[in-house]
Design a protein around this nucleic acid. Structure first.
Length: 463
RNA sequence: GAGGCUGUAGCUCAGUUGGUUAGAGCGUCGGAUUGUGGUUCCGAAGGUCGUGGGUUCGAGACCCAUCUGCCUCCCCA
């Protein structure tokens, strides 16, 4: 048979995986630096844990797992009935499926917090980097299996959390060296006030979705969408006035206050953004390049966000967002625990990979993973090489010996292809003098060294 | 969930209105070269033309189905 992969899934070659690990490692270091702790949850969750948490569209995209042993079931009639219903319409039933693949990392996190609430110290700060699955149609930058990398705080309403998450975003994209990064900031409360201001408080979701397309379809396109949603003409004018305000974040907030400050939610949203920015200005390094931008047209898809929301894009590459997040006031409420507020951000590492790849921003030193290779000259020389190999490894230098006394140029070509930075030649003449020849494959230079000199050289020069 | 495009060697692609034995470059392997890679020269291997049906004297090419990749909508990371 001819092997193939399921749609929308990928293998990761050694080079790709090193690069992915470079991204994850960079992020992990930052998360740890900000006091977040690692967490992993199972690939499988109870379907009931996931259903209804991501909206109608989300439910459709959850990968469901067929129950085992259906053929041994005693309730054939019930199964047939349920199966018939399932063939008619989107429907799921525990009789046929009661487990599903994780759709994101936030809901499993909420589930975890609820199940372990008595052993956790709140505020609980965790990061999680694992694959998630969606039965979506694959496209460029969109996969059925992809990784999410989340960092959330639960159990604190302080806007210091929002400010710290903004810092994490900035410092992460600074460390990865991605140019043209913008972190857009908005508040669900501002959007709610906006809906109120145009007399359609109940249509906040619709307005938000239309507004989110501003970048894509322009103001005229958004106007058409709004009209289709039966937003009044005066309402559309109000929205138009507000989204066209320009200026620094402080200026924008002052303007928004004029327009929306008399609504309770509007005032709250503005105050929250002000506090967030004020904490942030104290914490942030002035050298960070990623720019903060207030953008009232930013929506964010998930319907559990309630406060500040954020999204990261880069204008260096044509690509959707590479990160996003926000505050969700009552996430664990879905699982029966009220009053725990959460706020978190997510990194789209598959897309970040594509951006780094496209811009050639991966460090060259990710290389082969091994510092040096010993060529094999056979017999007594092989024995000599083995003793060197052992010493190198004991000194913490990663090393390998070519396994056969193959022809010289074959061994060299192998080293070259693997991009191993150093080659050690220890043949008859070296062995008789108790020395070794160390060749730097980048510059092509070779020198005769004692083992201890070689070790200290490699220790300082290895990648 | 809706609509559209695509698939030929490991990779990137040629292949005329349907007509003998399907080609190139790169890569791979062997040799020039048994202690020196990245350059060069010579040679070789590698294809049930995505898969399954159909039309035809004859299909890589045309038709249908299916799978994959990609694009638009929807939605999202």
């Amino acid at each position: 048979m001819k092997p193939s992969l399921p749609q929308g899934t990928r293998d990761f070659s050694p080079t790709e995986l090193r690069r992915r690990q470079y991204i994850l490692g960079t992020l992990r270091q930052i998360f740890e630096c900000y006091g977040f702790q690692p967490l992993e949850t199972p690939a499988l969750e109870q379907l009931s844990t996931l259903m209804g948490k991501y909206g109608e569209e989300g439910d459709r995209l959850i990968f469901k797992v067929l129950n085992n042993g259906l053929h041994t079931s005693k309730k054939k009639d019930e199964l047939n009935e349920e199966w018939a219903r399932l063939l008619e319409s989107p429907y799921s039933t525990p009789a046929i499926t009661e487990r599903a693949l994780r759709y994101d990392l936030t809901i499993p996190f909420a589930r975890y917090v609820v199940m372990h609430q008595h052993e956790l110290a709140f505020p609980f700060k965790r990061y999680q980097m694992q694959p998630v699955w969606r039965a979506d149609r694959p496209q460029r930058g969109r996969y059925r299996e992809f990784w999410q990398c989340d960092c959330d705080v639960v159990g604190s309403t302080s806007l210091l959390q929002e400010a710290e998450l903004l810092c994490i975003y900035q410092s992460a994209f600074e460390a990865l060296g991605i140019p043209g990064v913008h972190i857009k900031l908005n508040s669900r409360k501002l959007l709610a006030a906006l809906a109120e201001a145009c007399g359609a408080a109940d249509k906040m979701m619709d307005i938000t979705i239309a507004l989110d397309k501003l970048d894509k379809i322009g103001w005229t396109g958004v106007q058409e969408e709004l009209m289709r949603m039966n937003i009044s003409e005066s309402g559309i004018v109000v929205i138009g006035n507000i989204i066209h305000i320009k200026g620094s974040p402080d200026e924008l907030l002052a303007q928004y206050e004029q327009h929306l400050g008399h609504f309770e939610t509007g005032r709250q949203g503005i105050d929250e953004l002000r506090s967030t920015l004020s904490y942030h200005s104290v914490l942030a390094e002035s050298s960070w390049h990623p720019q903060l931008k207030l953008d009232i047209s930013l929506a964010r898809g998930l319907n559990y966000y309630t406060g500040v929301i954020m999204e990261v894009t880069t204008d260096a590459v044509k690509m959707g967002s590479i990160g996003g997040g926000g505050r969700y006031d009552d996430l664990t409420g879905l699982f029966g625990v009220k009053g725990l507020s959460g706020v978190g951000i997510s990194f789209g590492i598959d897309r970040i990979y594509d951006v780094l790849d496209e811009l050639g921003l991966f460090p060259e030193s990710l290389g082969s993973g091994v510092d040096c290779i010993l060529l094999n000259f056979g017999n007594a020389d092989e024995q000599y090489a083995l003793s060197i190999l052992k010493s190198l490894r004991a000194a913490g230098i990663s090393a390998e010996l070519y396994p056969e006394a193959a022809k010289f140029d074959k061994q060299m070509k192998y080293a070259n292809k693997r991009a191993i930075p150093f080659v050690i030649l220890a043949g008859e003449s070296e062995r008789k003098n108790g020395m070794l020849s160390l060749k730097d494959m980048h510059i092509g230079e070779q020198k005769l060294l004692s083992l201890s000199d070689a070790i200290s050289f490699l220790t300082t020069n290895k990648s």
